[in-house]
Amino acid sequence: MGADHPALVPALFVAACLLAAPAAAGPADVTVTSVAVDPPVLMRGDIGTLTVVVQNTGPSTVSVGRARLYGDSVVPVSEPYPSVGDIGAGTGRTFSFTLRADVPDGVYYPEFSLDFRENGTLRYPVPVRVDDTPLRATIAERPDTFSPGREAAITVLVGNPRPNAASGVQVTPLGTGFAVTPTGAFIGNLAPDGARAVPFNLTPASETNVTFAVTWRNGQNSHAANLTLPVSFGEDKRRADPVASNVEVAPEGNIYRATGDIANAGLESARSVIVTVGPPAAPTDPYRVYVVGTLDPDDVAPFEVTFRAGANVTEVPLIIEYRDSDGNPSTVTVPISIENRTAEGETAAGVLVPVAVAGVLAAAAALAALWYLRRRRR
Rank of each mutant, 00 (worst) to 15 (best):
D29A: 00
A213N: 06
G219W: 10
T57Q: 07
F200I: 03
T203C: 02
A356D: 09
E346D: 09
R308S: 10
E339N: 15
F307M: 04
L122V: 06
D131G: 10
G177T: 01
G149N: 09
N264W: 06
L114S: 12
S63G: 04
T333A: 13
I87L: 06
V53N: 14
A282S: 03
R129K: 09
V84M: 03
T284A: 04
I262M: 04
G85N: 12
G120L: 12
S272P: 00
T215I: 10
I47H: 04
V316P: 00
R142K: 15
N312Y: 13
E79D: 14
G310M: 11
S147L: 12
P27S: 06
P354F: 11
A270I: 01
V360A: 15
T176D: 07
A270W: 01
A24C: 00
Y70H: 12
S330Y: 11
P283T: 00
T203G: 02
V74L: 05
G359D: 04
V313R: 07
L99E: 05
P110V: 13
P125A: 06
R288V: 01
P125N: 03
E111N: 08
D38N: 11
T57L: 13
D72K: 13
S167P: 01
D4V: 12
V360I: 14
A225V: 15
A364F: 02
L50W: 01
D298P: 02
G85R: 15
G48F: 00
S73D: 14
A140H: 05
P230C: 10
A363N: 06
D261Y: 05
R196G: 00
P80W: 07
S63A: 07
I338S: 05
A101H: 03
